[in-house]
Design a protein around this nucleic acid. Structure first.
Lengths: 349, 349
DNA sequence: TCTCCGTACGCACACGTGTGCATACGGAGC
DNA sequence: GCTCCGTATGCACACGTGTGCGTACGGAGA
């Protein structure tokens, strides 16, 4: 049996409406009565029921967040950014992991609808269009966190991957690299393409070619994916001098595979990651990478949602909003000028 | 305006009670009526309100989980284990991060009480006693996930750290190490002590001493904590041949510091971690460690909570339940027999 | 035809909170 | 004394769902 405002009303000898108004700081209740009621409430340990309040006000004060996996460091940092905002703002956080599984997505969408969450932050690389439009149709405010501007979401917080890969490429070219390979992630189609685009543009800007065999899609974005890609690079007839990886986890695997193949990083191959996961500062050699502000992505998305909810407007009729964040290049030890072996540039003529 | 059972009732020409019963699969409603109502419900896209149901049944079908931080890989793996169980069981998951901050704890406790969660999984290294007993007092079922048996929680899922450090120590002794240092984490008092106890018992069992200077409490459990500890070990007059770290993150930092000090792992120093975080298989050299089944801890705790809630009993009157999980030693490359330099054993006499 | 009984459904209330409206009261102005 | 008005509070309903109890109906048995 939970304590309710009726219990307080009984003790204070007033009606429950008065208690409700007093606790909400509503005007029209005398100062003394208000104080007396607040005193009683705290004395008997009253805590309002978010459930009952939610039913009455049709606002749950809870947000739903859908991620790929919670135990992926990329998503968990975003989640932390979201949580910090929500806790401050007095919202609660429902977390659900879709695991790239459409049937799990369906369960999650159902759960979010049942819970009547005030808004949803979609933070998964793949989210079924049908589910998205279903949520929109039922009026749920949705903000997506992603990596690319060309998105189906009108409300979006994303990281400028293109800028990132441009910076990486510029830096590698500056070091003297002319042969740069790209190890993509076959499971992240549009994101991997965005990062490749930056590379291609910059190479093109200085009239350097990227032969087809320098672009390789690894089976996944994890270390073993990177290992496969690195082995592929080593075995090429004309291997590259630098390898740009889709993300840090792949770069970590690539470094391992290169070492096992007897190659030295960064002498034989420069390796660059993307994301800047915590481990990257502790690899051997420490990993040069492009920092993606993961925490910030979550933080800003939550902030955007909070402000929107305060505005009391309707997301479908309001015009969309996008926020682009930029990270920065972090130069560590896996990059160096190409060695003066025969395979540098096209000097072997 | 959400669709309610009353809307369905109007269309079907029955009372809302009939709809409620039909959708709940209650007996006493004819097969045809039930089918007809279910058809209408799915046609117009009806989704029951968990809020209203929760108010009526005083069961929220939601669990609260309190962690230290979401972006700590240790906790995020546990969370994933919990989520997988809850999604299957039809429960929703409220996540909150306390950040070791008592005032944040207070906010979280308040939020959990307001939400009327059905149960709480406390998964943080430090949780204020006052808050714990407050939650218990108000009848919330609580299960803790921890690292030690001597706990204030009667319901507990924990990992047998003592067994883990015993295994590590046995293995190091087997390799021939006689001088083993322990780098603890000053911020995890009881846990660090538990892991030290295993070391001490095994060393004692073979009559090997652990001088006081071989036990060092690092300022935190992160890589930089490990770096500080490793530097300390290197500078000792009589340095150890093996270093047992509180966890993998510290071991990673220790390896880096040792390398920077010109020491070779595992030739000059064997290094062992604890936890087996994903990255440990990709350090250089790859890290020998003791695997702590993090996902499993979350999974089992959630399962325990679920079963308890199904039983409809009261946690305060029911007798407690504890589940101990054991991981296993994972031998990789950071461990080897001690080198035959002068400082091996006490052969320098 | 009357009673009995099982089936199928509706009525009405409850859960805890918020809120529009009515109402009681006291003081000011005529 | 009467009206008017502002202040302080109560009444009653609503939010969406679940459920105990009552009831109408139809068939079987006497």
């Amino acid at each position: 049996m939970m304590i309710t405002i009726k219990d307080i009303a009984k003790i204070a000898g007033v009606s429950h409406s008065t208690v409700s108004r007093a606790l909400s700081g509503h005007s029209g209740i005398s100062k003394e009565t208000t104080d007396r009621i607040k005193k009683i409430a705290s004395d008997i340990g009253y805590v309002p029921s978010a459930v009952a309040r939610g039913l009455k006000t049709s606002r749950s004060n809870a947000l739903g967040v859908i991620v790929n996996r919670i135990d992926d460091p990329f998503f968990s940092e975003i989640l932390q950014g979201i949580e910090d905002v929500l806790q401050e703002a007095g919202y609660s956080l429902f977390v659900a992991a879709s695991n790239r599984d459409s049937s799990r997505e369906k369960i999650i969408v159902q759960a979010m609808r049942e819970r009547r969450v005030d808004g949803i932050i979609v933070c998964t690389t793949q989210f079924c269009d049908e589910h998205r439009s279903q949520l929109e149709h039922y009026g749920f405010p949705i903000i997506a966190i992603g990596n690319h501007e060309e998105s189906d979401y009108r409300w979006l917080v994303y990281h400028d991957d293109f800028y990132g890969s441009v910076q990486i490429t510029k830096y590698l070219i500056e070091l003297g690299h002319k042969k740069i390979a790209y190890l993509g992630n076959a499971r992240a189609e549009s994101t991997t393409q965005g990062r490749l685009n930056g590379l291609m543009q910059e190479m093109n800007a200085v009239s350097l070619p990227i032969p087809d065999e320098y672009i390789f899609q690894c089976p996944n974005g994890k270390p073993d994916g990177g290992e496969i890609g690195a082995k592929y690079c080593v075995d090429l007839v004309d291997p590259p001098t630098a390898i740009m990886c889709f993300n840090d986890m792949m770069a970590i695997g690539a470094i391992k595979a290169l070492r096992e193949a007897g190659k030295c990083v960064p002498i034989d191959f420069s390796v660059v990651g993307f994301d800047d996961v915590p481990f990257s500062a502790y690899t051997y050699p420490t990993l040069t990478t492009f920092e993606q502000p993961k925490y910030q992505l979550g933080y800003e998305a939550a902030q955007m949602m909070y402000k929107f909810l305060q505005s009391q407007s309707d997301m479908n009729s309001a015009k969309g909003q996008t926020l682009m964040l930029r990270g920065e290049l972090i130069v560590r030890e896996t990059t160096a000028p190409p060695s003066n072996k025969m395979n540098t540039g096209d000097s072997h003529l």
